[in-house]
Amino acid sequence: MLRYTIRRLLWGALVILGVSLSVFVLFGPVLRARSDLSPARLYAGKNPSAAEIVQVEKNLGLDKPVMQQYGDMMYRLVLGPSDAEKKRLCPNASEDRCRELVGRLGRSYAKQRSVDLLIWDRIGATASLTMVAGVIWMSVSIPVGIISAIRPRSWFDRTTVTGVLVAQSLPVYYFGLLALYFFTYKLHLFPQGGYVKFSFSNPWPWLWHLILPATTLSLTFMALYVRIVRGGMMDAMGEDYVRTARAKGASERRTVFRHAMRNALLPVVTIFGLDLGLLLGGAILTEATFGLQGLGQLSVSAASSLDVPLTSGVVLFAAILIVVANIVVDVAYAFIDPRIRLS
């Protein structure tokens, strides 16, 4: 088990290395070669002189060989910015100010703030949205999927199947805008948008602001998960061991909940973990619809303002989240499925 975990971790590190390399290549040499996005044009103000351009490139470390630039980036990612880099990137600032300007993921020039802090400011909204949405879609889709599977072709099942189809074909913003129109503008049940920080003394405002966006976000996933749970459960109900359970005299309830369900939900755990990892990188459409200042919004604004360090920082961050989610899922799966442990 330990061996397995270590192997997964090492694999994860390897994948992150690969992802960082492609992020570096895409946002560095490739981007510069294929467009007029020269850093000098972005950072040195209008009509810079040749000397200014050289100075900017030197500050950014772009005069160094490409491999060394990548080495610098990895050093920064793992150990934090080096003293030399701090000196280059924020030459005249104090130590504290410099920490605000340069982080492990670099410095955003457009926002004059470190990418780490920009992400940290936004992660609360995105994480809250993801968690609440996850709770909503899991608590709906598991029971609905199960009931649908044990009563195939019943009215409940038919309604579910139709609902799944509708929910999967509606775009998120469409449902989001409908919900905003009815629940907020007509019925005044929910706030217009925005995000309130969670507080233990009164979590209600936090939740109140999240209900509509989280429900909207969860809808597509709910539909997908109902399908997965229903399919998994129908397969499990047809398995030989379910027949064995019935032949032992197990009640229908016991057969469903003890024997079929545990097997049927195993794959759901995997997909759930991966989806959470994916969503933590930002839910662009939902955040935009409900004016939530999350990571999705951050990446959109970074891209539209041609903020290369911020864009690449967000991409790298999201990629690391997905890799971490993969590892967590793999290890968790090994704990719940006895068959994995040996191999």
């Binding site: 398995e239 030989d240 032992k248 024997h259 545990r262 097997n263 195993l266 006895p338």
Partner: peptide, 15 residues
Amino acid sequence: IAMIFQDPMTSLNPV
């Protein structure tokens, strides 16, 4: 009445 089945690989619950 008890019953046993053909495939002992799949007739026991794996988990």
